[in-house]
Nucleic acid binder design. Structure first.
Lengths: 195, 195, 195, 195
DNA sequence: TATGAATGAGCCTTCATTCAT
DNA sequence: GATGAATGAAGGCTCATTCAT
């Protein structure tokens, strides 16, 4: 099990294939063809078809969160941070349409296994959002009685749905153009009264 | 095709089965057993397994939207309407855990077929939310420059995510308890400045 | 799972197919074709391909032993009983060439599972032979110091090898014609000195 | 094909692996790992997996028969020769448990190829036994009307089954301890009346 | 010669769908 | 209409064999 680039190639191929047909309607041989390798080769790097999906998700999600975290670290104010987070969220998805397709649509699947497998990576994103909100509350910028957990889910869900609509639609517009509106409405919703 | 109750029985059985195992991991024979009929009988009422899912979704979603529309009609103010919509959304899901499971998780799947099949019913919900927002804008209660489409998706996504978290979690709390917070934050976000 | 004759049909077909190609080189679809049914049908009656082999063996072996036991019960003297057993052993195999092939050759395979699965049925045969020998010893016809267990295995092995040679050869002679010689030599070997 | 020890290493490794898992459940890579070489290397010395088994058998069987023939040559009387043959048969198997496992169990498999491939070596063993019996008959020690071919198969089968039982069992006793009993019973069976 | 990653044919098993009863 | 046994296409995975290094 040598070639250190193969797993990545397979994952990238799987993203494209899953984006096209969905996980269940994709054959392992489709992924192999897309990756330009033999189907048996996939099993040198992944134990099962399912493992490809799980790995794909974990890796991409972890990288995504790490990227957001890094970018956001440079922004001082909570409001600006949230704005930046929303913008980056949409930017990344827009620049990776196939990934967006998989993440937005496939990963919602009712795989029991996914609930566990993805729990950590999703949590990390939630925690990132949550920590910004906490900060804002502590700093007096956001409502002192803000139900942070609910608000966190709301923002995530809001971004997610806007992105999903974009994915499911013909992508006839720029996703990033919605970033400002989303951030503005959400920020208004959580800002402390009187500020 | 005689028995007019069979399709309904099948759909209700399918909801429970899909909720347990997911669409792809559910067998038609599982649905039949759950419905107390023979698997062949299902094909007297549905052309394919897929049709069960599509029908299930359309029917439930249509009924859901109709119910919301009816209930909301009695509420005069846009703010109160939105509050009521959020509360009812959560109430219905909480009272139909299996349905919630299917709608929240399964329907997100990347079935190409779903995108078209469910478009109408989902649109109806979006339109319901959108019309309330339009009204609020027209009535001067919501921000005059509110991007209604984006805001619509945001509210839907926010409710959806809060519900999804509840479904995926152990359901260790009351979903309806989140209704107020969700409504409050969203309303604050869309309300006209200075109101 | 209704048709009560299907399992038998499948087993008989499997015997012929295994006899032709061996267990590992036989495909489930071969058995299905031989049985005149669809390959999926086999799985309505057997859980796995392996189960077919195990069932086949157990059933045939049990019937074989039961048959021998029944036939032998009518013969009073140990010597005559052994002679009859040898004759019947060869007769049955000769009349069921495919079964002989499978039993003689396939069942010797190193399937770990077989060692356990077949243990009971093989033991029954050994016990049948052993009991005749015990009787003969007790009745003073066979050597008083006869190591019954060893002698039992010897007779079984002797019959088995003679049958195997017949199976592996072109079957250019009558197997039953060897019965007398086998019985005579063995009986002479175990008879009490001076009798 | 340079290294003259490799084929032997591979065969010895194959014996251990086949003894553990059986031929069909053993992977070529298992043999390679057991031999401490790469799986591709095996194909420098053997054309196929099957060839390993055939070669293994031929070589071991030929050596076995040659060994027996050599040892027996020194014994003058047919009875003593047979006794020695039985003892050596069991001794060799007992000292090579893995080989015994393979020979006793695996080689019985219904490989069509085996019937031809091993015919010569098995024949050699049969001929060895047969020649001793012929000698005994000619010398007046064994029954003049002894059906030598049948008796040969009987002795081989008897030894084989005793050994097989020992292999399949837990090997909870010494195989060689059965040698005397086997030889005694068989000799009594073939000895000339009145001798 | 040795390696072991890559190949891809092959097969068991599942399950949506059909149809004789 | 209802049944459920039967069908057979489909696909995940294995592993003997090859071949570039």
């Amino acid at each position: 099990m040598r070639d250190p680039e193969k797993p990545q190639q397979i994952i990238e191929a799987a993203i494209r294939v899953f984006a096209r047909n969905g996980y269940y309607s994709s054959r392992v041989s489709d992924i192999a063809r897309e990756a330009g390798i033999a189907s048996g080769t996939i099993y040198l790097y992944f134990k099962t078809k399912e493992e490809i999906l799980v790995t794909l998700f974990r890796e991409k999600m972890a990288a995504f969160v790490a990227y957001l975290r890094r970018e956001i670290a440079q922004v001082p104010e909570p409001e600006a941070r949230l704005r930046r987070l929303v913008l980056l969220h949409f930017t990344v998805l827009e620049q990776n349409p196939a990934l967006a397709e998989v993440v937005q649509v496939e990963l919602r699947q009712g795989h029991k296994f996914f609930r566990g497998a993805s729990a950590h990576e999703v949590s990390a994103y939630f925690e990132l959002i949550g920590s910004i909100l906490e900060e804002g509350v502590a700093g007096g910028r956001f409502a002192p009685d803000l139900p942070v957990k609910v608000a966190t889910k709301m923002l995530f869900g809001a971004m997610d749905q806007v992105a999903t609509s974009w994915v499911l639609g013909k992508r006839g517009y720029r996703l990033v153009d919605a970033a400002d509106a989303v951030a503005t409405i959400f920020l208004k919703g959580v800002t402390r009264n009187g500020v």
